[in-house]
């Protein structure tokens, strides 16, 4: 709008500055209006209330025997719940983390040592690793094995061999530093999300 002033009056008229101010205000109001209008329409693409409502799931842990593993769906992805045996826990804790590609202590990955809860999506290219069902190949470390490109995870679901760069994610964790999104909310009940 400023160029209008240049177009229509290089001579200084007394009403000129008032018109500039008016045009400036009009332009500002128009701009504010447009920006304020855009936001709600963009926001429609953010997760809707029904999607957000389904972002929590409760799992009854009682039926999972020691040594058994369960897969549940959470936020559209599989979550591995492993009721670890004492041997699996010992093996996980005994590892020298400085040798790991993605160093992380086992105690940082669990709230209760007998329950390992991780997102069952390989951090390489997104396949679902094997190891949840009896008879599955669990790989050389007794954890999980991804058949797509051969990534191998240990009993703490940390990456040991193969192309994956990172350990299996804890639910809700985008960076390793942040808290995992699950709580034990009752006798044998865990709430994820």
């Amino acid at each position: 709008m400023a160029d209008v002033a240049q177009q229509n009056g290089s001579e200084a008229h007394p009403g000129e500055t008032r018109r500039d101010f008016l045009l400036l205000t009009a332009g500002a109001i128009g701009g504010v209006g447009i920006v304020a209008t855009i936001w709600p329409f963009v926001d429609t693409l953010n997760p809707a209330r029904d999607t957000l409502a389904l972002s929590t799931t409760e799992v009854d842990l009682a039926p999972i025997q020691i040594g058994q593993r369960l897969t549940v769906a959470w936020r559209g992805q599989p979550v591995f719940i492993a009721h670890r045996t004492p041997e699996e826990i010992k093996a996980a804790e005994a590892v020298d983390i400085s040798q790991l590609r993605d160093p992380q202590k086992d105690s940082d990955r669990v709230r209760k040592p007998e329950w390992l809860i991780v997102v069952g999506v390989c951090t390489h290219l997104g396949c679902i690793p094997l190891g949840q069902k009896t008879g599955d190949d669990r790989g050389p470390f007794g954890g999980w094995f991804c058949p797509c490109h051969g990534s191998v995870y240990d009993t703490s679901a940390r990456i040991r061999q193969g192309p994956a760069p990172l350990n299996l994610w804890l639910p809700g964790q985008v960076e390793q530093a942040s808290q995992a999104l699950y709580k034990f909310t009752g006798e044998n009940v865990v709430t994820i999300g």
Partner: peptide
């Protein structure tokens, strides 16, 4: 309310420009 103010400002601007 925003539109009422905007209409007022745009009307004033229109009158000024058309003077």
């Amino acid at each position: 309310l925003f539109l009422v103010v905007a209409a007022g400002v745009f009307y004033a601007a229109k009158r000024k420009i058309w003077a």
